[in-house]
Simulated assay, not measured.
Amino acid sequence: MKLKGMAMAALLACTGSAYAQSAVTLYGVLDTSLEFANHVAPYSAAGFTANPGAGNNVFRVNSGGLSGSRWGLRGTEDLGGGLKSIFVLESGISVDNGTMQQSNRLFGRQAFVGISHNTYGQITLGRQYTSLFVAMANFMPTAYATQYEPAAFMAGNNFREDNTIAYTGVFGPVTALAHFSFGAGVPNLAIQGGASAFGGNGEVPGAFRRDSAFGGAFTYSAGPFGAAIAYDQWNPSVNNAAGVYQGTTATLKKASVAGSYAIGQVAKIMAGYRWGKVDNNGTGAQLQRDDYYWIGANYQVTPAVGLTLEYDYDNLKRDYFNNTHAPNPWQIAFVADYSFSKRTDVYLSAAYAKNAGLTLDAANTNQLATTGATGNSYILGTGQSSMVGVSLGLRHKF
């Protein structure tokens, strides 16, 4: 009995030591805003119809303005020798009505586990952001603000992908990223005016390419200067209007470069370019081709007051709906943010879009980006060519 008690004590001591080197953090953001927008078409399940209906003014409470509302768990365990295990579970929530986002997923924003080494970097497996999306994060003036920045337009609707293995390595001022998805699992998106759609869950026996995706990126940061270059490709299923697989895939390719320059501790200028192309491999048709540009700046007026200005422009060489050169969409956005503390701030954001809705949502761009984040579409009403949005919000981080 004495030996058994000593063994149990030793086991408990070892267990306590292991847990002492582990850490789990609960974190989150609650962001809610009051918004006015004009010329907004009624929401349609079809999403990308050419004539979605007459536009009207809308007044609403949104979940997510500067940030998507979320809560999450982040954990690490020190395994010794510079090695540790890591995990992230992150759930998107709608604060305005208490529901889950990302197609009602429990952990729709991120869900992955991995191994990290101090020297060689980390490998993670699960639902994760694409390399292009991560690389460009520090070069988007409003930092992927949920409400008015065309983040999904820039990075693609597949900026989060299921079934993904990803690598991140930091080597001095250079960060290398790469990922591969065995089945991106992006919801169906209409093309050709709703006549067909692409999307799916992938990982189908005998169809390795179907719904697969991959990409890579490099970022550089030293002193006031930063730069990034990235590539992303998604090979989604091509389905008919009823969502039935047609036996072929599309190819969505994006490549992006960006740069930034900081002026002291108070200002930062950012600019970037994203090349995009969409092909239907079954018919050989080119569905879209565009060149997207952005430029903007952050200015910290006081430690509590920050201002942001961003201009976005897309040279839409070939649009989805008519396969013609539609009027090029552009947008200008402004944000004024006041911080009560490191955790709580209020903000005023405003945007004006031309030849598309806010965030460049439109049938001709095949974009309904905001719906996935806030439940609200900014598709223009019939006969309208511009949209204005103004939002007053409160954000709390924990």
Rank of each mutant, 00 (worst) to 15 (best):
K2L: 13
L3S: 15
M6I: 15
M6K: 14
L11A: 14
L12P: 03
A13D: 10
V24S: 05
Y27H: 11
F36L: 08
V40W: 02
A41F: 05
P42H: 04
Y43T: 06
A45E: 15
A50P: 12
A50H: 11
A50C: 08
P52K: 04
A54T: 11
G55P: 02
N56Q: 15
F59D: 06
F59P: 02
V61I: 12
S63W: 00
S63Y: 01
S63E: 01
G64A: 03
G68L: 02
G81M: 14
G81E: 13
I86P: 07
V95R: 03
N97A: 01
Q101E: 13
N104L: 10
Q110G: 09
V113W: 09
I115E: 03
T119M: 11
T119G: 09
Y120I: 05
Q122L: 07
T130I: 05
S131Q: 02
V134D: 15
M136I: 05
A137T: 12
N138Y: 04
F139K: 07
M140G: 04
A145H: 08
A145Q: 11
P150F: 06
P150G: 09
F159L: 12
D162L: 04
T164S: 13
I165C: 01
Y167L: 01
G169C: 00
G169T: 00
T175W: 01
L177E: 08
A178H: 07
A178E: 07
H179G: 12
F182G: 06
V186D: 08
V186N: 10
A190R: 05
A195S: 14
F198E: 04
G200V: 00
N201W: 03
N201V: 04
N201P: 03
G202S: 03
P205V: 06
P205G: 05
G206Y: 02
R209L: 11
R209P: 01
R209C: 03
A222L: 13
G226N: 08
A227M: 05
A230P: 00
Y231C: 01
D232Q: 12
D232S: 14
W234P: 00
G243Y: 00
G243H: 01
G247K: 00
T251E: 13
L252I: 10
L252D: 08
L252M: 09
V257A: 12
G259V: 13
Q265N: 14
V266M: 15
A267Y: 01
K268H: 06
K268R: 12
M270R: 04
M270L: 07
G272V: 02
K277F: 11
D279G: 05
G282F: 05
G284L: 00
R289K: 15
R289E: 15
R289C: 08
D290N: 14
D291Q: 12
D291V: 07
Y292N: 13
I295Q: 13
G296H: 00
G296R: 00
P303E: 05
V305N: 14
E310A: 15
E310M: 13
L316R: 07
L316Q: 09
K317C: 07
F321V: 13
N323K: 10
T324C: 09
W330H: 14
S341P: 06
R343K: 14
R343P: 03
T344Q: 08
K354N: 15
A356F: 04
L358I: 12
A362T: 06
A362R: 07
L368E: 05
L368C: 05
T371R: 14
I379H: 09
I379F: 12
L380D: 03
S385G: 07
S385M: 03
S391M: 00
G393T: 06
